[in-house]
Design a protein around this nucleic acid. Structure first.
Length: 427
DNA sequence: TCTGGGGTCCTAGGACCC
DNA sequence: TCTGGGGTCCTAGGACCC
């Protein structure tokens, strides 16, 4: 049977998550901040209406926040991740083919039936998610993923459609596309918009009708594919099988600048530990590790950034091995006299466990086996009692300069027994 | 005082080989 | 006096996404 795509996208996801446990905030402006309480990464509709831009540094909207009593939250990824899983589970209960595209979006494929049935079905999906999880979603339906993205945008913006918009059998499709700016197309960013505008291509409809050779030349095959998708030719298929990641990155800006190598070392150890945990969680190993340290882009002081890539002897998922390599690297990267603001680690050369042929002697080394047991125990304890219950070589000092600033964090309502919401009887 | 983090894909250009 | 061409692999950087 022929299928169409539907894109299910949670509305203002992080803000909606925060509100779920604070019904008193319904109808009020809410924003959620990036790590270190730096930038605005999510806004409720009321906050959008106040003109708070996406990605704006908090200090630039302090005035608006104070004036309109905007409720501000630090990001709480444990909460958002858990609610995301719940949304995806509801989708999987109803549909076999679900591609989780990001924390707040999923593509699904629906059989082609009469349009009325599709919209009715989508409405039921939406209602189930609202009832079972409590998060509002919008659903866009179309014959390609790129068009489904556009349909979703219409569903979200135009209240009369009740969160669902179907472009799949819409005879007015060109009229819809003619009203949307080309920079709103999935895959068309700032640079491409500039090029397109210079060629008098302003709307999605203009792009749909653009000359293919020109697009191929100036926007590469990626752009050419987008144009085909706008013309209803599906080039991007549904990826519903989880695949091996190509890279795993853990990096953080520091809460305060760091100048000494001891604090840098602790930060790197902590990031490598997280990266190692991610490897083991997905059952994969990495054979290459890169680390970087850098001063900030907004700092007046002298800037310095450097990175180093190390090829490991064996693919590994052992935090012990990764830390050994990373610390060696850090020693050669570090230069005294700078105010460091960020560090990170990247793991590449990732293969699923046991895929790569191992060094014949590795099995004879007692450390490999012992390390495996150690990692298993470590992960089990940290998953039960919270991520930093057992850590590598860390001082127990309070307020380390590199640790994240999160002054307005909501409780981990759904993932931590200590922070469960309490229901009290009225009166 | 205060500016996030984690990914993917594509291309150009250099190194290297025959 | 003469100084090719083609293929592959790797990496850095650009662009984009959420």
């Amino acid at each position: 049977m022929k299928k169409v795509f539907a894109l299910v996208d949670c509305n203002n996801f992080y803000a909606s998550c925060e509100r779920l446990f604070r019904p008193d905030l319904n109808g009020k402006p809410v924003i959620v901040l990036s790590n270190n309480d730096g930038c605005v990464v999510a806004r409720s509709n009321e906050a959008k209406a106040l003109g708070i831009p996406m990605g704006e540094p908090l200090f630039k909207v302090k005035g608006l926040v104070a004036k309109h009593k905007v409720h501000v939250f630090s990001s709480n990824y444990a909460l958002y991740g858990d609610l995301s899983h719940r949304v995806m589970d509801v989708l999987r209960q109803m549909e076999p083919d679900v591609e989780v595209y990001s924390i707040d979006e999923a593509f699904i494929s629906l059989p082609v039936t009469k349009e009325w049935n599709r919209v009715k079905y989508a409405a039921e999906l939406r209602e189930r998610i609202r009832k079972q999880v409590g998060i509002p979603v919008s659903i866009g339906i179309a014959t390609t993923k790129t068009l489904a993205k556009i349909a979703n945008r219409v569903a979200k913006k135009e209240a009369q459609f009740n969160g669902i918009f179907d472009l799949a059998s819409n005879s007015q499709i060109d009229q819809v596309l003619g009203k949307i700016e080309v920079n709103d197309v999935w895959g068309i960013g700032r640079r491409s918009t500039e090029k397109l505008n210079n060629r008098a291509i302003y709307t999605v409809l203009d792009l749909k009708r653009a000359d293919e050779t020109w697009v191929r030349k100036h926007l590469t095959v990626v752009g050419a594919r987008t144009v085909m998708e706008l013309n209803g030719i599906s080039c991007i298929s549904l990826e519903n099988a989880p695949s091996c990641p190509k890279s795993i990155i853990t990096s953080r800006s520091f809460g305060h600048p760091v100048t000494d190598i001891d604090n840098l070392r602790e930060a790197v150890i902590s990031y490598v530990s997280i990266a190692g945990e991610k490897l083991r969680k997905q059952g994969v190993e990495a054979d290459t590790l890169s680390i970087f340290i850098t001063t900030g882009p907004f700092d007046e002081q002298a800037s310095y950034s450097n990175n180093q890539t190390i090829t490991l002897h064996q693919p590994t998922s052992s935090t012990t091995e990764l830390i050994t390599a990373a610390l060696q690297s850090l020693k050669s990267l570090y230069r005294p006299g700078y105010r460091y603001r960020k560090a990170g680690v990247m793991l590449t050369g990732i293969t699923s466990h046991g895929y790569r042929q191992r060094d014949v002697f590795s099995f004879l080394q007692p450390t490999v086996k012992e390390d495996k047991l150690l990692m298993t125990a470590l992960d089990r304890i940290n998953s039960k009692w919270g991520r930093n219950t057992i850590q590598y070589g860390m001082t127990t000092a309070e307020d380390k300069p590199w640790s994240m600033q999160q002054r307005r964090k909501s409780p981990a309502y759904t993932t931590n027994w200590q922070e469960l919401p309490v229901a009290t009887a009225a009166g």
